[in-house]
């Protein structure tokens, strides 16, 4: 426990994080490239088509991983916000700020690919059911955090305000996840279940699993890159950052 606290407090130092994370980047980049590359070719070319939807089902290989990370990324942002609020850790504030545009982009990708798939499958691009509406609320929460970050001159006030919004918004995540079970929606229930086998043929599911893992690696990679850029920007006047450019 003592060593965990030591590690936790060292993580709070932007300089320590910057130096450590530089060594993780090549591994994350390689993992993301390999997993997404293999998953895309496998899923889009070699996986069998769906009996009813034909080839249009293949959008699942982008839609589901993007939606997964949009939800998981919100927890990353909210937990970083909470750590920033409680421990006043500067690095946590920077992670929260970096997670917002990334999550917004992934949410948009999930909504957009869903609309593109919805037209040939359902017969409409958009419907105001609980799943799709709560996902739109998620996009607005991400955009709200981004807007609050720019609404204050003081970094601390901006961090506190956006952490509060992020924490209140966590209510939305279980709602998105369970909306298809709690209410009648046009969106189908989850194919990949926490308990039990996925209701998808293994030949179609394996590339999807690769894509999800690849998106996790990609998310970690982009989040760290964003955070490093934020560290350099905020600490640009310190000696250690200036010595980097010498």
């Amino acid at each position: 426990m003592a060593s965990f606290y030591q590690w936790f407090h060292r993580m709070g130092s932007p300089r320590w994080f910057y130096e450590k994370s530089g060594r993780w980047l090549p591994w994350l980049a390689a993992a993301a490239f390999l997993l997404i590359g293999t998953g895309l070719i496998w899923g889009l070319v070699f996986a069998p088509e769906d009996a009813r939807q034909g080839n249009s089902f293949r959008i699942i290989y982008i839609h589901v991983p993007a939606a997964f990370l949009a939800l998981a990324g919100y927890y990353v942002m909210a937990v970083a916000g909470a750590i920033g609020l409680i421990w006043k850790m500067k690095l946590a504030d920077m992670v929260m700020k970096s997670a917002a545009p990334l999550g917004a982009a992934l949410t948009f990708v999930a909504l957009f690919t869903g609309a593109v798939w919805g037209k040939p499958t359902w017969g409409t691009y958009w419907v105001w059911d609980a799943r799709i509406t709560s996902m739109l609320v998620l996009l607005f929460l991400y955009l709200g955090v981004m807007a609050l970050q720019h609404a204050y001159n003081s970094l601390d006030t901006a961090a506190r305000a956006s952490a509060l919004l992020a924490l209140v918004g966590t209510v939305n995540i279980p709602i998105i996840y369970k909306s298809v079970d709690w209410w009648y929606t046009l969106h189908q229930p989850a194919t990949i279940k926490l308990t039990g086998a996925p209701s998808m043929h293994p030949d179609m599911f394996r590339p999807l699993l690769l894509m999800i893992l690849g998106f996790y690696a990609f998310y970690a990679l982009v989040l760290i890159l964003n955070t490093r850029a934020e560290i350099l920007h905020r600490e640009r006047r310190t000696g250690w950052v200036q010595s980097l450019s010498e």
């Binding site: 769906d50 009996a51 499958t121 189908q188 229930p189």
Partner: peptide, 11 residues
């Protein structure tokens, strides 16, 4: 509107 279920199967 058609409602699709959560099952995906090859033909």
């Amino acid at each position: 509107l058609a409602k699709h279920d959560e099952n995906y199967t090859p033909p």
